[in-house]
Amino acid sequence: MAESPASSLPFFRIILRRLMLPAVIPLVAVLLAGMAAAASDKKGGEEFPVPPPPFTPGIFPCSSCHEGMEVNTQKRELGEHTHITLRHAPEVLTWCFICHDAKNRDKLHLVNGDLIDFTGSYRLCGQCHGTNYRDWKAGIHGKRIGYFAGGRRTYFLCVNCHNPHDPKFKPLKPEPPPFRPLDKQNGP
């Protein structure tokens, strides 16, 4: 005797109610929680205690000159800012506006278009130099001064050591070597 479709429905409902619902509800809850967490994530991550960027005196805020100026994105020889030579990954960083924002000169922009302050320039450098950025956040790249505990540290910005336009370190003159044991200034 074949069962009518109508009579097999209650069986199906039992399975749904007893087995699958208990599994589905936690799943939906987890999904919702995940979505909530993703929405509350701060855009850009944490803040770091950095010193003020090493600007040439008087150059900041840039908008004091650039406010009314025309925006010329053509690559050319500049009249102002003549002391800046761009020698940093020329195949990628072809011109100023890869990092500097053309419309708002007081800010830099990331590849995804986010505007950041000059004090947050480490995020910009971290886009290409991710491994160094990760080490800098942990404190093992670059320089930290002050107190290493108690929140009074200062993490030097990338630009405090590396000139962003010409980052290759120039050789330094070393400090004098120690006196030899028989030197006049070391002996009795």
Partner: peptide, 17 residues
Amino acid sequence: NGRYPACVEACPTGTRK
């Protein structure tokens, strides 16, 4: 007092941790 040693602060290339 929680401060870094003088050699850590003097190093210009961030060599010392």
